[in-house]
Design a protein around this nucleic acid. Structure first.
Length: 488
RNA sequence: CGGGGUGUAGCGCAGUCCGGUUAGCGCACCUGUUUUGGGAACAGGGGGCCGCAAGUUCGAAUCUUGCCACCCCGACCA
């Protein structure tokens, strides 16, 4: 179908990598596990970032920036936190290089050893709470609603473009509150914002839920998550929001005087989404012909292809349409490259996932028409030149909705329930997806199921229906179903 | 970290087993001509530390040793 893209059927993993590389989103870099995000990929990320940033600001958050480096001692102040991250930290031990006495380039200067090692942040709770200690004294200083856009480093054993890279870009919100209830509400609010963003902008349906204690963030009392389902039947944890209780406040001694003049520890949340969302975006919509970008995140909404090449009449028609589209706030590109033939351009823009293609040829113009082709369905229609911009605007809405609906249908078709372990395993084998099943509530059972099937509990859905049942593995009583899946 | 694989032009590969002129092919790139409604054709042209290092040899992309990097599968992973 498309040149150089492995089909999903042949190898989903290779298809995924091919899409990213051929569409120009990102590349492997010279550094192990780290990627170069190319202009096209970064443009889509910028659109995500800008929209999320608006949503954060609308809910009263402000941006700040904290250091990349964290003193080693900070990390160990919260016991669970350090345990969760210790195995994947990049550590700075020296601050100077020198010429190799043996003439082989440069070497680390042993005399420049740091007194205390610095950790490249895997997440910023510790450095931020160490700072909050100085910022918070009174209930009047609360709530503190801060977000930062940053890069973090987690030295994972195995990496995949966008889904799990050694260094990645993300935002991390860190809030401080006077009461437990307010903090819980904040954590829930941010989860809803993530879900709204995923569904309305990425056209990626998500399940909102809570993590089991075993899958919780290191140092959290409760972790909320949005879980999406990819085309290969695997789940992708797409965003998390944590209620941190008073754990970090206690670890960093962050207290405030309440209105009754009593000293109290602050209540905390943290929440984040990362460039992993790009992976979710790709795997939710794209096909064997290439990337598909939902219009609300597209850097270019429509592209005009002159057929067979630019010329006075076609240019004039293109100008007209471009002006009308720009007036509507729609980004359009006119491809005037004379070296490439139309067929090549068609394939190229499909690969890049541009939502709408506008073909203008002499034959069309003689009839006063242009051809519109939508990326999601491949459907082509002839429309009058004067009406083109209006139809494109409408098409973009339709594409956005259709992508969401398609993904929703896929998820519905790949969400099952199982009441015994054999059925559970069969479903996992046959079609994957989410499986709703009873679980006895113990970490031991959860781990055993993972060991036997590789499936994990993705979440306990919010507003979960209460229902008597028996654990699929142990037969112990259970009062609600949880959502299992194999995950990225 | 275990298993498998790959490093030769921007990309994709052949050549390596069995050492020997000037390292080759397709795509891409440059020039020109003809083309142009679903990845154009012809002609001419440019581009190489053959992953790195050491060794064997008259001679190494090819043999030996060491190292490095990346990919896939697994283990691991808010």
């Amino acid at each position: 179908m498309s040149k150089g893209i492995t089909s999903r059927e042949e190898s989903y993993a290779n298809w995924y990598t091919d899409i990213i590389k051929k569409a120009g989103l990102a590349d492997h870099s010279a550094v192990r596990g780290c990627m170069v995000i190319k202009p096209y990929g970064f443009g889509i990320w910028e659109n995500m970032r800008d929209q999320l940033d608006r949503m954060f600001k609308e809910t009263g958050h402000v941006n700040a920036y904290f250091p990349l480096f964290i003193p080693k001692s900070f990390l160990s102040k919260e016991a669970e936190h350090v345990e969760g991250f210790a195995k994947e930290c990049a550590v700075v031990t020296h601050h100077r290089l020198m010429n190799d006495p043996n003439g082989n380039g440069v070497v680390v200067d042993p005399s420049a050893k740091l007194e205390e090692e610095l950790i490249v942040r895997p997440t910023s709770e510790t450095i931020i709470w160490n700072t909050y200690k100085d910022w918070i004294n009174s209930y009047r200083d609360l709530p503190l609603l801060i977000n930062q856009w940053a890069n973090v480093v987690r030295w994972e054993m195995r990496t995949r473009l966008f889904l799990r890279t050694t260094e990645f870009l993300w935002q991390e919100g860190h809030t401080a509150h006077a009461t437990k209830q307010e903090a819980v509400e904040e954590a829930e609010q941010m989860l809803h914002i993530y879900a709204k963003f995923a569904e309305e902008y990425m056209a990626m349906p998500v399940i909102k839920g809570r993590k089991t204690p075993n899958e919780r963030f290191a140092g959290a009392e409760d972790t909320y998550t949005i879980e999406a389902l990819m085309q290969d039947g695997k789940a992708l944890q797409s965003g998390t929001s944590h209620f941190l209780g008073q754990n970090f406040a206690k670890a960093f001694d962050v207290k405030f005087l309440n209105q009754n003049q009593k000293e109290e520890y602050v209540w905390a949340t943290s929440w984040g989404v990362s460039t992993r969302l790009m992976g979710g975006l790709i795997m939710t919509h794209s096909d064997d012909a290439g990337l598909i970008v939902p219009p609300k995140l597209a850097t270019t909404h429509a592209v005009i292809v002159p057929i067979p090449k630019p010329g006075p009449e076609i240019d004039e028609a293109a100008e007209k349409i471009m002006k009308a589209l720009k007036d509507k706030g729609i980004f359009v590109k006119y491809d005037t490259d004379k070296k490439k033939r139309p067929g090549f351009k068609f394939a190229e823009y499909e690969l890049q996932g541009i939502p709408v293609r506008i073909g203008i040829g002499k034959r069309d113009l003689e009839k006063g028409q242009v051809e519109l082709a939508r990326r999601d369905t491949g459907e082509k229609t002839q429309v009058p030149l004067d009406a083109a911009a209006g139809v494109v605007e409408q098409l973009l809405d339709e594409i956005q909705n259709n992508l969401f609906q398609k993904a929703l249908d896929y998820r519905a078709a790949h969400t099952s329930s199982a009441d015994d372990f054999d059925t559970f395993k069969e479903i996992l084998e046959d079609k994957g997806g989410f499986i709703s099943a009873h679980w006895d509530g113990t970490t031991e059972t959860e781990k055993k199921i993972k060991e036997l099937t590789k499936a994990t509990i993705r979440c306990i859905p919010l507003d979960n229906e209460q229902e008597e049942g028996k654990c699929i593995l142990t037969g112990q009583p259970s009062k609600e179903r949880v959502l299992f899946a194999k995950a990225y």
